[in-house]
Design a protein around this nucleic acid. Structure first.
Length: 570
RNA sequence: UGCCGGAUAGCUCAAUUGGCAGAGCGGCUGACUCUGGAUCAGCAGGUUCUAGGUUCGAGCCCUAGUCCGGCAGCCA
């Protein structure tokens, strides 16, 4: 694909690519001859939207394939028609493509392997390694034993191969009701690993499948299906999250009993991040509870939400690389993610001026009716982006925060009698503060120094601060959505007894503000990203309309003054 | 409680496979600056979970224990 192969490019350029226990294991497999190539896969179930934890998995899978010159498949693990929908298939494809992973022509569906899986199940029955069990779900669970006690063998465990073959064929033919029978692997009801106690391979489900329609009424379970899918596709390294570690003996058992090509499963720790939640169930609760607007709410760590917020795939990839891969559980500080976002956007986002909370400034010595245009640098990080012209006049908006009637120590911005620079325009001095009946500051009357046009004083005098501004008649009203952490605590589950995680919801995770932006942004297309100078990174929302733009705050700028002031207050 | 896995700086990860414990982020300090942004420089003195053992030498190996996570869906 286009520019999203930096991981491979870095590897090719010999730049240092961080290693981890998985990459080391793969190198060892290549050295020992266990495998002579690398082939990975990302196997989502199409039953939910992807989140940044999935992005980590994608970048482990795809990144490793790239680094080792191997292949990467996108495969939908669609073995449960009760939960899966085409809508999710489409959304996941969009998300993975947006992330920048390239599966070439290898887009696969586990359901396309159902026939082969069925044949292999028949093989296992013939070997006496699988049997049709008539126990109900409750009975299966009751006879499974506990973590400390062995299970009890099913009374149907020793049916003849002929009877099993007949019953299994009739299961497929639709002769039996849902839940009335299952196909089980005959392993060991006394195994200390509960998953090995004759696990279910097929269940009867008279339900249409989003791709297979009504072709099947028996569906394979994850444990039975997953290794087969990997085997069929020739995957070498089946990388998954740690919850599957205990499933590995089963994964290996099926492949060994079948005697078919045997990929290696390796598990890594899933991603957790501070001030957010990372599970499908939690997302549903938040959406249904009206706490967020939908799965693409910019406060959610879903890929759709992050995209809407203005986060780039490159920032996500950089983040995945920085957090590394390990086996221990971890809680990643969201500050690391935000830092990746800033680093990326700082490089690429064009600058613009926006005033979120305006206060009017009148330049008393600026001729009435006069206007002019100032040249502003589009991106100091990238001179090739050139400059733009921004109208300037007698009446301006500046940020309310950029003025203090009684400036505290170390406050460098505008105050009565003080001089500051209007970015790329003029030095101005505040002469007079106009207030309303309640004593609120409504207007600042200032004088400008015509000799400082462009922002420099010929006499060499300095100002301590540069602030941003907007020309009142040409300022474009805009809706600006200021997002903050969704939760007040690093761990949303840190609640008093009897409360649930919603008790930690941040009531100010979204603040909508009516501000102004420079005229060039009145028709910003949805998805366009900017740095509003001295304020933060913003992205035009899909709700934006020509002439009345809507912007989402992607991230704030680091604000050292805020830190100084907070320290003073604390 | 049985089995599986984990434990290194506030956080996330390293440590050439047994050879003087490092990095990024955060935090703090300073420099610089037409974004108090960006950038640059400095600051971590860590019982490598604990206690034993092997060894000239242990974060790496062995033993016992502690704590944390996962597993008893016909979910994945």
């Amino acid at each position: 694909m286009s520019d999203n192969t930096a991981t491979g490019a870095e590897a090719a350029a010999g730049r240092e690519v961080p290693t981890d226990f998985i990459r080391e294991a793969i190198k060892e497999d290549l050295r020992s001859g266990r495998f002579d190539r690398v082939h990975t896969r990302f196997p989502p179930e199409p039953n939910a939207y992807l989140h940044i934890g999935h992005a980590k998995a994608v970048w482990i899978d795809y990144g490793i394939a790239l680094e080792f010159g191997g292949l990467f498949n996108l495969r939908f693990d669609d073995t449960n028609p009760l939960k899966e929908e085409q809508e999710f298939v489409d959304a996941i494809i969009e998300d993975v493509r947006w992330l920048g992973a390239d599966w070439g022509d290898r887009l696969f569906f586990a359901s396309d392997y159902f026939e082969q899986m069925y044949d292999w199940a028949v093989d296992l029955i013939k070997k006496g390694k699988a049997y049709v069990c008539d126990l109900s779900a409750e009975e299966v669970s009751a006879t499974r034993g506990t973590l400390t006690e062995p299970g009890i063998e099913s009374p149907y465990r020793n049916r003849s191969v002929e009877e099993n073959l007949d019953l299994f064929a009739r299961m497929r033919a639709g002769e039996f009701a849902d839940g009335s029978r299952t196909l089980r692997a005959k392993i060991d009801m006394a195994s200390p690993n509960v998953l090995m106690r004759d696990p279910i391979m097929y269940r009867i489900l008279h339900t249409s499948h989003h791709r297979q329609g009504d072709k099947w009424c028996i569906y394979p379970t994850y444990d039975w299906a997953h290794g087969l899918e990997d085997s069929i596709e020739g995957v070498t390294h089946s990388l998954c999250s740690q919850e599957y570690e205990i499933h590995r003996p089963l994964y290996d058992w099926f492949l060994d009993e079948l005697g078919i090509y045997h990929p290696r499963q390796i598990e890594f720790a899933r991603l957790n991040m501070t001030y957010t939640v990372m599970s499908k169930r939690r997302f549903i609760e938040l959406v249904n509870g009206g706490h967020v607007s939908g799965y693409d709410d910019p406060r959610l760590p879903t890929l759709a939400g992050l995209r809407r917020r203005g986060v780039t795939p490159e920032a996500i990839r950089d983040f995945c690389q920085k957090i590394g891969v390990a086996k221990r559980d971890s809680l990643v500080d969201v500050a690391i993610f935000e830092d990746c976002v800033r680093e990326d956007l700082n490089r690429r986002a064009p600058r613009a001026m926006a005033v979120l909370d305006p206060i009017k400034v009148v330049l008393t010595n600026y001729p009435e009716g006069q206007t002019e245009e100032m040249d502003l640098v589009n991106n100091p990080e990238d001179p090739s982006t050139g400059t733009r012209r921004v109208p300037f006049g007698r009446e301006l908006y500046i940020e309310r925060e950029d003025f203090r009637e009684e400036p505290p120590p170390k406050y460098y911005r505008l105050a009565p009698g003080r001089e500051v620079r209007l970015r790329s325009a003029y030095f101005i001095r505040c002469d007079e503060v106009v207030k309303d009946a309640e004593g609120n500051v409504v207007e600042l009357r200032c004088t400008y120094d015509p000799a400082t046009r462009g922002g420099n004083a010929p006499d060499g005098r300095k100002v301590k601060a540069t602030i941003h501004w907007l020309n009142v008649p040409t300022a474009v009203p805009a809706e600006i959505r200021l997002y903050d952490h969704l939760f007040l605590k690093p761990d949303p589950d840190d609640v008093a007894p009897g409360q649930d995680f919603t008790a930690n919801l941040n009531p100010e995770s979204l603040r909508v503000v009516r501000g102004f932006v420079e005229p060039g942004l009145s028709h910003a297309p949805a998805g366009a990203r900017y740095q509003f100078e001295r304020v933060g990174y913003f992205c035009a929302d899909p709700d934006t309309e020509p002439g009345t733009p809507v912007f989402n705050r992607t991230a704030t700028l680091r604000d050292t003054w805020a830190k100084i002031e907070k320290r003073g207050a604390g």
